[in-house]
């Protein structure tokens, strides 16, 4: 049996690292730059990168509306860092015109932990991830400022939610793709498998 086909939005960001993590857990990774490519995947990863850049390119290359529609239709999506921002309902400290995909009932604060000199690594307990703590890398990372009741908080740093799930949507403020620990990606692939959207 072959693994699910999981797209990685490849407009900008750390696509290669997500591809490796996905193949480590038996998924088939495919880069997505076009709406037609989006239609061919069972799940989608929104990588780390610059959220304002990715948002602008989503608009330019006419992916924003197809993505919003796919999320509404139940496509499982995992976003890390910039990807978390894109999945939010609203963003604090973003650009006023910054396009978001939405789907997760939350408001995120961009660059919440500070500038690059404040970026850090820390061990985190993440609900739903078995075994030792997840080693989490935060790079100019956001946090969840406000979350609706439907959003399940999986991990926190200093009270702020940094990993969340709502149905088939998963988001982390940190970068599990940078550490070689593929348990977050395994969790996402399990979500994709159980959603069985049969797309």
């Amino acid at each position: 049996m072959s693994g699910p086909r999981i797209g990685i939005l490849a407009l900008q960001g750390d696509v290669r690292e997500h591809a490796r993590a996905l193949s480590d857990v038996g998924a088939r990774a495919a880069e997505v730059r076009r709406a037609a490519e989006l239609a061919a995947v069972d799940g989608l990863v929104l990588p780390g990168g610059e959220s304002t850049t990715i948002g602008r390119l989503l608009r330019v290359f006419e992916l924003l509306e197809p993505l919003r529609a796919a999320v509404v239709a139940g496509l499982p999506v995992f976003g890390s860092c910039a990807g978390m921002i894109l999945l939010a309902r609203d963003v604090v400290d973003g650009r006023p015109d910054q396009p978001l995909i939405g789907g997760l009932d939350m408001v995120v604060r961009r660059n919440a932990f500070g500038r690059q000199v404040d970026s850090f690594e820390v061990d985190l307990d993440v609900d739903g991830v078995e075994g030792p703590p997840v080693h989490a890398v935060f790079i100019r990372a956001p946090w969840v400022e406000k979350a609706g009741d439907a959003v399940e908080v999986l991990a926190r740093v200093a009270e702020a939610p940094v990993a969340v799930r709502q149905g088939p949507l998963l988001a982390t403020a940190f970068h599990p793709e940078l550490t070689g620990d593929s348990r977050m990606h395994r969790l996402f692939v399990d979500i994709v498998r159980s959603s069985g959207s049969g797309r």
Binding site: Q12, D14, T53, R140
Partner: peptide
């Protein structure tokens, strides 16, 4: 890791 996030940009 910070530089990884700039890729493609």
């Amino acid at each position: 890791g910070m530089a990884e996030m700039l890729k493609g940009g």
